[in-house]
Amino acid sequence: MELNELLDCVSTLSCVVTQVSAGLTIGMLLFLVASGLTLIFGVLGLVNFAHGSFYMVGAYLALAGYGATGSFIVAVAFGALGVAVLGLLCERLLLSRIYGADVLMQLLVCYAIVLILDDVVKIVWGADFLSMGVPDSLRQPPFIVAGGIIPYFYAILFLVTAAIALLLAWGMGRTRFGRTVRAAAVNPAMVAALGVNTTALYAVVFAIGAMLAGAAGALSAPIRSVVPGAGVSILIESFIVTVIGGMGSIGGALAASLIIGLTRSFGSIGFPLFVEGMMFVIMALVLLLKPSGLAGRRGA
């Protein structure tokens, strides 16, 4: 434990600026993945263990899109939309058949998808790690705010992810589609009885969830290794976020993601050997004190 350094940091504006901005960016990227996971669970009741693989495929598709066009915007769009289509196919061909099945069956089918996607990316892109690198247009000197460092690309990442989060909140809270989705999460039989095609609704929700993971993979491709199996660690963190925030709660996922991001950021200074452990401590505390999660429904 290096608590003196942590105290020095929180009492220094430059350190606070650097750590908070980094923590928020990490947290928002995590939120994109976790929000898709929790959306799928909340509406479809499916624990999507293959969600990390969608993140990985998003990164590979973005790499391909960037290689073909040289445009980062096209790369992100290609990654996100490509994974949405992939998610739609997975849902229609495989996962729709196991709605309501026990968790073990869901785990088996999702694990099959993980293995298949890992092998497909190896066949298409090879087993070696790949790197996109930050596009030249976004490779600018970092902002210096009160002596703290905010990388230009991180600022862009934060703005884009925050915009997606706002769009998601607006879509789920203020649109007819969002109201239908929320109603289907509570009582799908009633929604079907009112004439809504729940089969199509589920497919679209799954595609949106997958697209969020794909977008996170695509956005982070310039600063992270693109490698088969890259989704495993992000999946574990996403499950931690989902448990802390509350299964099925997008608002909870946002809060939990930012908590995890800031914990990682400040933890690296105060308790660098226990950063990973601290995430699980927070999760355990939440499970003990509020088992449904920060914003989860009781009994969820």
């Binding site: 350094e5 940091c9 350190c15 650097t18 750590q19 980094a22 960016t25 990490i26 460092i149 991180y154 982070s220 600063i223 992270r224 290794s225 890259a230 660690s233 992000i234 990682r264 950021s265 933890g267 690296s268 200074i269 660098p272 950063v275």
Partner: peptide
Amino acid sequence: QPDYTENITRLSQ
């Protein structure tokens, strides 16, 4: 590890 942000900010400090 997929992301080194926390390590880099630690080094910066």
